[in-house]
Design a binder for these strands. Sequence first.
DNA 1: GCTGCGATTTGATCCAGATCAAACTTTTCC
DNA 2: GGAAAAGTTTGATCTGGATCAAATCGCAGC
Lengths: 239, 239
Amino acid sequence: MDIARYEIPDAGTPVACRSCQARHGVVCGALSSSQLKELGRHSLRRKVEAGSEIVAQGSESSFYSNIMRGVVKLCKVMPDGRQQIVGLQFAPDFVGRPFVRESTLSAEAATDAELCVFPRSLLDRMIAETPELQRSLHDQALRELDAAREWMLTLGRRTAEEKVASLLYLIAAHAEPQTATSTAFDLPLSRAEIADFLGLTIETVSRQMTRLRKSGVIHIENFRHILVPDMDALERVSA
Amino acid sequence: MDIARYEIPDAGTPVACRSCQARHGVVCGALSSSQLKELGRHSLRRKVEAGSEIVAQGSESSFYSNIMRGVVKLCKVMPDGRQQIVGLQFAPDFVGRPFVRESTLSAEAATDAELCVFPRSLLDRMIAETPELQRSLHDQALRELDAAREWMLTLGRRTAEEKVASLLYLIAAHAEPQTATSTAFDLPLSRAEIADFLGLTIETVSRQMTRLRKSGVIHIENFRHILVPDMDALERVSA
DNA sequence: GCTGCGATTTGATCCAGATCAAACTTTTCC
DNA sequence: GGAAAAGTTTGATCTGGATCAAATCGCAGC
């Protein structure tokens, strides 16, 4: 198999993926060392900047990726332009839809990110040969399904304030805690993206952020940097 | 393994599951005939009536099921009683959350239904031994994930009328078509359940149903029986 | 057939969040 | 360093769907 055949525009350095060889992650944690080596030979480390599309909605993708660093948003767009973010993925998640070529959603880097990109055909073969890998991907799919259903509850039944608090809580839970109770992080999403995640408008998101700030549940610095002095308090307002 | 150990209250007739032996379905289609026989020996055919709970939110379930007949709704409830239906499952879907014992949602029969119930420990062993079964369940999980994400778009970005039309379209798509364009079916959900699926109130659901009826997109008989003369028209108003 | 009850529809009013509009803040790029 | 552009906040007003209230329908039980 020749890596050039799989080269994608602006694909980055064709080096074996060190992080994969460290066996972390949904895919690489489930592979034997010879499989890791083979995957490494056909992988491209690719830096993508915030906003660039990884997979387009409606397109057929010949690639899967592992997220090495950064945040990826999964997005659905209606013909008239209405838009909904249907998932957020963090390192070391796997990006791609096994078994179906055509994507019903787009994947886009929400922050600057680093991916390990490899050909679909190769991983599909490894999935078929490696029950442990199938299990690992099955497990990720089930975790994503749990998360999606939790978000359905948020979208359908929570108020605007609860929605914003829930999203902040979700993101904070992926950041390093500062102390036992407090956490600080940079929001990976703009107000517009938050609105698209929560089924709100940017104005409503902004107003609810202000509300949370005035009530002391969060501190905001420079729009993007958030400090949560007490995670329990944030959880409480997210209902 | 003794089936009595797994007996559940009011569990129904302990007969081998004929339909499973016919190899249809997510689970049974992936098993060898000896596995089918073993699963059959430990299965209970169980009739459940509309409204009865199959798995309770927050409980630990020792059972999985296959849906033989009927519709099952997956539901999340907030401490204050707000409620969201997060999935509908039809025969021959598999019901249960592999790998995690505690359920974060409840499963409830939406219509009178018939299930094939069997012990978690047995299927977990078969999953570990049978890549084909893992694959089949992985595939169902991914289909459910696609569906969940489609509903996130509906919940977040569609209007009340589009929501109601989308749900009718979804259910109609599971019914036998009458002619090339028209379909008739009995709604498996009450107005209250529809509201809980769509993040609306029963009054809004009722008004939108009336609206769709007055515009000729659907005909309603006896509250529950729906005729869709033109599926394309219904799809159009669901945006 | 009458009665009572749950499910549904219909009507009147209210309000959370959308929309429209403008100011302000930060970043980008000459 | 300054101007334009992009992102965010704030304010005024509107509206789709919620809430409150009542009538109607269909069915189970007597």
